[in-house]
Every structure is written in C-alpha cells, then in structure tokens.
Amino acid sequence: MAQYRFAKNWQVQVNARNLTDKDYVSACSFYCYYGAGRSVEANLSYKW
C-alpha cells in the first residue's frame, strides 16, 4: 500500500498484492485452493 496526499483535500492510494504473480496454496482441507493472482488497485479521493 502506498498513499500520497497531494493537496489539502486530495489523496491517491495504490494497493498491490502478489506482484510477482507466484502460484501458492492458500488453504487445504479436503481440497487445496490456490491463492489469488496479481492485483493492483488505485483510489483517488477528495474530502469535502
């Protein structure tokens, strides 16, 4: 997560997960499940 406030009321935020896009097992019970792939999200917000 990276966040930057660039004006009095403006803010930008970027969240990234699994940047290398590696395969991994996130849980196993009766079946095993792979974890989520690469994801990047950006958010721009203004506070009134």
Rank of each mutant, 00 (worst) to 15 (best):
M1C: 04
Q3L: 06
Y4A: 01
F6Y: 03
F6C: 01
A7W: 07
A7S: 13
A7V: 05
A7R: 09
K8A: 07
K8H: 07
N9E: 06
N9C: 07
W10E: 01
Q11R: 05
Q11D: 01
V12Y: 01
V12T: 03
V12E: 01
Q13W: 02
V14Q: 02
V14R: 00
V14Y: 02
N15L: 14
N15C: 07
A16P: 00
A16D: 04
A16F: 07
R17I: 05
R17A: 06
N18F: 09
N18R: 09
L19S: 06
L19P: 00
T20N: 12
D21V: 06
K22R: 12
K22H: 12
K22C: 10
K22V: 03
K22Q: 12
D23V: 11
Y24E: 07
Y24N: 13
V25D: 15
S26L: 08
A27H: 08
C28S: 10
C28W: 10
C28M: 11
S29V: 14
F30A: 11
F30C: 07
Y31S: 06
Y31F: 06
C32G: 03
C32M: 04
Y33W: 14
Y33E: 09
Y33R: 10
Y34H: 11
Y34C: 05
G35S: 12
A36F: 08
G37H: 13
R38T: 09
R38E: 09
R38G: 05
R38C: 10
S39V: 15
S39W: 13
S39D: 14
S39Q: 15
V40K: 15
E41C: 09
A42D: 03
N43S: 12
N43F: 10
N43I: 04
L44M: 11
S45G: 15
K47V: 10
W48E: 12
W48N: 13
W48A: 10
W48V: 02
